[in-house]
Design a binder for these strands. Structure first.
Lengths: 244, 244
DNA sequence: GTCTATAGGCGGATAGAC
DNA sequence: GTCTATCCGCCTATAGAC
């Protein structure tokens, strides 16, 4: 919007703005952990930062805009860890990579439970995410579709069964999200995706307390079976076993 | 605690107390829908009821106690609908009943999204459910175990595969929850349970918006596959098809 | 059991000086 | 960009009269 000659003072000003913005978001994330998204308050953030509440409005026009920024950051952070896992196992088979990405998602969720709740927990009452969150939200899905595409191009993808009554729906989903994949695969993947988040959510939100103890192994086995369900040929053991 | 001779005035008083308690909980549930559990407020409930906030403390000693009552009610309501579905299909095979119960859970969750969020959504910050919620929470699980037991006693239960590294965990879970079922079954059921709630949660919390359209059929197919995963022999179509 | 009154907080958001 | 001051609302919880 302003000039592009990038003189030093303007650069410094812009840098300061970025730093303060980051500090606000960091503090907000801490508050997210303590009080939850529903109670995120600009005033409390300002107080902890030694600022006055009205100053924050120069950075975020409203509480909801701050929330939106946190959501986008969370999706991007989750997406990055999925992409990193994919790239780390770039030479492994698609089944291997599937498990690695699932484990990365679980690891991220366990490390950032409150941000996980923000994007995959119950909705924040009175808040509706704007469309600007969509690209960040799509990153994880793209990682999975990439793995399925690789498998499809190679020879590692079996077609899941699909009842006739579900075929129209599967074809619509495939047309919308991955026209280069078989409809059976896309439908099975969407179901597996939701189920994956059931496994992660139960663990992160404490429903496995006093139920599952060896959660890491339990999870690996479950996502291996999910991989099988979408048609991926998968290794007997997960990627962690390859390292030890 | 008091006398047991049940004279009319005492009965009337007790009835009134029950009625007011119910009215408070009803209003609180409405507020749950509008504002979410994190913002549930005794004052707002009192205002809507035409009472004064301090009067509510005669019924619930604190905000958290009211929340606990709502959680127990929700678990019981969910459990009842699961039991009702099981009983409606008492004569059908276990696979049929599995699907019917899953569909009942989904139906309940869609009809009571905010109460569903209360029991299976992200935790309410600063609130920790007391142990008094456990019996109500266990009802749904018992319905599923009952179905699996029937199948096991009959001939309709295949043993899911179980990697050696997971066997100790599976045996511990079986000993804790269903000693009369094979460990393979118990482990597979726990995973299926979490996955089922992933499917329900994604739909209830809106993650399937613009992704899945024919959600009922999609769900039925997914839970049929879950049934298969735990070793149940299941019918090609769900119970709804039997009626139409 | 219900009321008034009160204590001691909290919040979002804006206006206008500097 | 940050400040003070302000508006107007909200909350949990208790004391003490009736």
């Amino acid at each position: 919007m302003s000039t592009a000659h990038g003189s030093a003072p303007q650069g410094a000003r812009a840098r300061a703005r970025i730093e303060v913005t980051a500090a606000i978001k960091d503090q907000a994330r801490r508050q997210l952990a303590a009080e939850g998204a529903a109670k995120l308050s600009l005033r409390a953030v300002a107080r902890e930062l030694g600022m006055v509440s009205s100053a924050l409005y120069r950075y975020f026009p409203s509480r909801d805009d701050l929330l939106t920024a946190l959501i986008i950051d969370a999706y991007n952070s989750l997406g990055e860890s999925a992409e990193a896992a994919r790239d780390t196992f770039a030479d492994a088979g698609p089944g291997h990579r599937w498990v690695a990405v699932c484990e990365a998602l679980r690891g991220w969720a366990l490390a950032h439970p409150h941000e996980y709740a923000l994007i995959h927990g119950s909705p924040v009452p009175g808040y509706s995410a704007p469309e600007t969150t969509i690209p960040a939200a799509a990153r994880v899905g793209e990682v999975f579709f990439g793995i399925l595409r690789d498998a499809h191009r190679g020879l590692g993808l079996a077609k899941p069964s699909l009842p006739a009554e579900l075929r129209p729906e599967a074809e619509r989903m495939a047309a919308d999200f991955a026209p280069d994949l078989p409809p059976e695969t896309v439908a099975a993947f969407v179901a597996a995706w939701a189920q994956l988040y059931g496994l992660v959510g139960f663990e992160v939100f404490g429903q496995f307390q006093r139920v599952v103890e060896d959660r890491e192994r339990f999870f690996r086995h479950a996502v291996c079976r999910l991989a099988h369900g979408v048609g991926l040929v998968y290794p007997q053991t997960g990627p962690a076993a390859a390292g030890g």
